[in-house]
Each structure stands twice: as C-alpha cells, then as structure tokens.
Computed example of a mutant assay.
Amino acid sequence: MTADSLAERAALGETVRAVLRRHADTDPWPVLCAQVGVAALAVPEAYGGAGAGVPELAVVARELGRELVACPFLGSSVLTTLAILEAGNPTDHSRLLPGLAEGTSTAALAWTSAAGRWCPEEVACAVTASGDRCTVDGSAHYVLDGDTADLLLVFADTGHGLALVEVDPDQRGVRRAGTPAMDQSRSFARVDLTRAAGRRLGSGDARPGLRHVRDLACAVLAAEQAGAAARALEITVAYSLEREQFGRPIGGFQALKHRMADLHVLVETARSAAEAAAEPGPHQSRMAAVAKAWCSRALSEVTAEMIQLHGGIGITWEHPAHRYFKRAHGSAELFGPPHQHLARLGRMAGVGV
C-alpha cells in the first residue's frame, strides 16, 4: 500500500462524507453516483467504470455505515456487480456493467433460501437448460433491493454446479415482494420464480466465483459495520459529556471511562480487521471471515452499550440509537452469521468446529 493510495482513499472518504452531510435530508444516491462515481468503483475502466478495488469499496461502505444510509450500494454496486465480474464473460460485462457503473440502473442478486445461510454450497433456485434457453424455479429470500432493482441475477443449481442466470424481473414467472426487516434502512425482498425464462452468464461451474464474491462482500460489509460502530461510539461519548448526574457529566465517572475505553478498543480492532480484509492477497478469504465475525460482534456490543448509556432516550423512536442497534443485529446475519464464519476459520485451520 503506497502513500498515494492511502491519500486517494482518504480523499474518497472525505468526499463521500461531505456529500452525505449536504444531503442529510434527501436521497444522496443520485449525487453519489453522478459526482463521486460510487456505483462505478468495482467496474473495470473498459466498461465505463473506475477500475478500483475492494479497499475503495470498503471506504465508501464505511462512510455509508456511519450514517446508516439506505441505498443500493451494497446490493447492486458490490454484491451483484462482483458476481457479474466473476461469473460472466466479456460479452456479458459489456452488456450489463455500463448501466450499473452510471448508476442509471440497479441490480439484485437472488441467492439464499429462507434459512439465510448465504453458503456457496446451497442456493435457493434451480435452473433447467434446453439449448440456448433456460428456466429458473425457486424462492430466494433476503434479496437486497430485490423488489426495486432493474436487473435480476440468480445463482441457480444446474445439477452439476452453479450458474449465474439473468432473469427479466418483469416477466410473468417472477414475483417480487418487499419483506419487512428489523433494520428499516436495509431493503430486502423475496423473489419467487416459476419457470422464469433466463439467460445464463458465462459457462462452467460458478461456485468458486460465488465463494470469492462472498469473501469480498463480507469484507465490504465489515467496513460498513466498523463505520457504524465508530459513529455509534462518537454519539455515545458526546452524550456522556452532556448528561449530568450529581452535578457532573456522567462521562467523568471512572466506571464509565472504563466502559468507553473498552468500546474504543472494539471500534479500533474492528477498523483494523475490516481494513485487513479489504486488501487483496492469498489470505483474503481468511481475513474476510475474521472481519465478518469480529465486526459483527463489535457493532453489536457498541450499540448495546449505546442503548444502555443513553438511558431512556436510547429506546425512543426519535433518537438514532435504536437504528444503530437494529443495523447491528441485521448486518450480523447478512452473508452468514458470525458462528458460520468462525466455523469456516476452524476448517481452514484444520480444527473440527
């Protein structure tokens, strides 16, 4: 990592944060796409993108996580775009990626079943091929922005591996419905496919690509969690210096200083884990599993303390504490719960878990 790349990432983070401040009361997504190019980051330059990598995606995710911004970045610009890059061929890339890079269209990836394991060995749908045509059947759950996306991609079982299939979301065989979630700043949908006509992207077994996509998505999500944890702690520390008991701010009591120090350690270690997971290298899969497990824990603990230290106002609808708490518990399950990734780490280390 060079000094120039660090400076570029810092500038990207500052730019995203400035946009979010200016558009705190409006939808910042169009501005983020048009002026900052966040939707184009993962797309190669040959297809109208910025040709950036996961570290840059993680920088944006961190800033979006700080403010709990509701936008299609994680589902469309990260998860689905990376899936197209992994499983598609150059023709698919030329056809699908330019619109996603511009932000004029969004995409959703149908993958997991109601169990929500987000495991590359298990998908919710199956595909049947006949010549150049194929049909897809199944019910995918927890599809990020699945009810509003313009483009629908489905990981489906061929009987001999996995295929990534493009499906027209407006056809008769597709039924999409938004599903309520604890975290109201995250949009999920259930997608039911009944003999839906599809078009396969690329060839061969897409399962290895899906494994890689999960690792990269976990790394980006970990950065989002680390950003949310940092902001939750900032809000909590500020409140502890305002709220008084016995004529002095509660933040001045030694017991609370110790608790704040423990939270600071959680936030900083989460940041370090997320940054390590975003860097490419031979150990990225391992680091992604570490980051997903640790950042999930860090955000959950920080937001639980946030609620506790705010007292009664921490559970009111008007205060943001409950939003961070809900994001913590929702994101902990997304792309696989922590215990699932800890089990992966055990298998990597050759330990039965």
Rank of each mutant, 00 (worst) to 15 (best):
L96F: 12
I307A: 11
A223S: 13
A46N: 07
D147L: 02
S331Q: 14
T148V: 15
L97G: 01
V302L: 09
A277F: 05
L151K: 02
A293W: 02
A189C: 13
T91K: 00
A276I: 07
P338S: 03
G103M: 12
G202S: 08
L256M: 08
A274W: 00
L97P: 04
I315A: 10
L82V: 07
I307S: 10
T15R: 15
V265Y: 00
L20F: 02
S105W: 00
A276K: 13
A206Q: 11
E63T: 06
W118D: 05
G227F: 06
T15E: 14
D205Q: 07
M182D: 03
L97Y: 02
R17V: 10
W118I: 09
G103Q: 11
G48Q: 12
T2V: 08
A61Y: 07
L193F: 02
M1F: 11
R195L: 08
P337N: 08
G51D: 01
G202I: 06
R211M: 12
L334N: 01
T303S: 11
G352Y: 09
R21H: 04
A276P: 10
T81D: 02
S105F: 00
A228G: 00
E122D: 11
R199L: 09
R172T: 07
S113G: 15
S272R: 14
L12C: 08
H322M: 02
P55Q: 05
A228W: 00
L299G: 05
A217G: 14
R297K: 12
W29L: 00
R17N: 15
R347P: 04
E166A: 14
S272E: 11
W294A: 09
R62H: 15
L152T: 04
E63Y: 03
T158N: 04
E301V: 09
A83W: 10
G198E: 02
V43S: 06
G251A: 04
R199M: 07
E14Y: 00
C119H: 15
M1E: 11
S5C: 02
T15A: 14
E56P: 08
S77M: 03
T316W: 07
R62A: 15
A229H: 07
T303R: 06
G37E: 06
W294G: 01
G159C: 12
V237Q: 06
D215P: 06
I315D: 02
P320G: 06
L210A: 01
C218R: 14
G247H: 04
R95M: 14
G99K: 10
P30M: 01
H319R: 13
G252R: 10
V59F: 08
R17P: 10
E121N: 13
V220W: 01
G251R: 03
E86N: 10
V19I: 15
R214K: 05
T112F: 03
L109H: 04
D205W: 09
A255T: 14
Q308A: 14
E121Y: 08
T158P: 08
D145A: 07
G204A: 11
R62C: 13
L96S: 00
F246M: 08
A261W: 03
A304K: 12
S285W: 03
V38P: 13
P98E: 05
M287P: 00
D92G: 13
R248K: 04
